[in-house]
Design a protein around this nucleic acid. Structure first.
Lengths: 234, 234
DNA sequence: CCAGAAGATAATGAATACAATCCATGGGGA
DNA sequence: TCCCCATGGATTGTATTCATTATCTTCTGG
């Protein structure tokens, strides 16, 4: 709970105040403490972070531009509601990016990249064997982020990361889905093979399929979750 | 003309000051008055727009998040420099989106959509016959934007529009390229055919090819322009 | 004459103050 | 009793003020 006031890891670089606020607020929304649809009173956040309203509002504007908060004129900001109906469109777009990542990464990957990814892949394997879902999710995120980097397209990386962060907010819906983890790792094996073989079309297809299956699993999990609790959070 | 900056249907609604500033500043940077790399002194913009620094700074933060301006801590903001080396990556990403737009639009297009696009297509034809490059460019923008809408994926539309705006800042490099306009329109003919036929793969391929050719033309034009003027603007 | 440093000046970063808007509560009238 | 409207509190939007940083000028020493 005190993680509110503690900055994660930006001690060294001189970030302007509003920038750190952007990071911390986004973290709170992604990690959960700021629930979907919840109102965000400026005054309270100012007290929490010990800053004035000016940098806080600047941070909120940035987060609104990134789609994490909703600014309603004269009516304050709310955490952008997570709408299960948006899972499909988000993954649809991500699929297009995954394909491009596959096409380009297969051609531009270096041995060093392969080593780094292989290390992550091993960590993923260990997480699967330990049934450490939380670790797996985190490592999976890092794996795909690293893969995006290999594409060599900074803009693509940035867009991809933004999408991943959007999706991350829905992950609580599939937290308990153990079976998907094993399946997911099996797909990762194939992805690594395609990457080592440097076969663009194959890698792209596998990434797209991986994305599609993850999407299906998440939609199914959302359906179940929402079916259980008649009325979700308000 | 004003269809760029804001959704068409919220023209009258009360926009907060910072929101209008975002739109107007982006307009200035896209249209040209604010040149690439140029410093943006807050004071001057405040005088220009007749507002105080607070909403102006909020607008700059948003534009920085969108990649239109570069905020250097304690050193002011500059218009994000247009780097010819970025043309490739931008179009590469746009190609992925074009493909997705093609795949989905072909399946989800309605007769009404077709009528609206056909009207734009006719306008494009007229612009070609009049050799009205400026009109063609603008209509072309509207055409692809409308096509993106047909995909039914709001997130895709948004990402696509942001990319288009980034690219728009490079258009001065190809303003004088008449031949490409005729070629471009011919490609649009094929795009309309594929859309009417509702053939996803064909439409996607044609949109990707269209995108690739536009990219090549722009890179070539940039090469020429930069070769002519030894040292670009600073 | 040039290089480096110290101070002046102007710009940005942040905080506070003021104005406008919204929401809730309560009173008056039908 | 119920509905409408007015008024008060609270919250957001904007302007102004203070603090900090960078840049430019100028002066001094080599």
């Amino acid at each position: 709970m005190e993680s509110w006031t503690a900055a994660p890891e930006d001690a060294d670089t001189q970030m302007s105040l509003h920038e750190t606020l952007v990071a911390r607020l986004r973290q709170l929304m992604i990690e959960g403490p700021l629930a979907s649809g919840q109102r965000i009173p400026e005054a309270e956040l100012c007290r929490r972070f010990g800053v004035s309203r000016t940098p806080l509002r600047e941070a909120l504007k940035v987060l609104a531009a990134q789609g994490f908060v909703l600014l309603r004129p004269n009516r304050g900001a709310i955490v952008a509601p997570v709408d299960p109906a948006q899972i499909g469109p988000i993954f649809e777009l991500k699929g297009a990016l995954e394909r491009l990542i596959g096409l380009t990464a297969a051609e531009r990957v270096t041995p060093a990249d392969l080593d780094a990814l292989a290390a992550l892949h091993l960590d993923l394997d260990a997480a699967v064997r330990r049934s450490a879902i939380e670790d797996y999710t985190r490592l999976n995120y890092a794996f795909h982020k690293a893969l995006a980097r290999i594409s060599g397209n900074a803009l693509l990386c940035e867009s991809y990361e933004t999408l991943q962060q959007k999706i991350w907010r829905y992950r609580f819906l599939v937290n308990e889905d153990f079976s998907r983890v094993a399946e997911s790792f099996a797909e990762h094996e194939q992805i690594m093979i395609a990457l080592r073989a440097r076969t663009p079309l194959d890698l792209a297809a596998r990434l797209e399929a991986h994305n599609q299956r993850t999407c299906d699993a998440m939609i199914e999990a959302a359906r179940k979750t929402l079916a259980d609790s008649g009325a979700p959070e308000r």
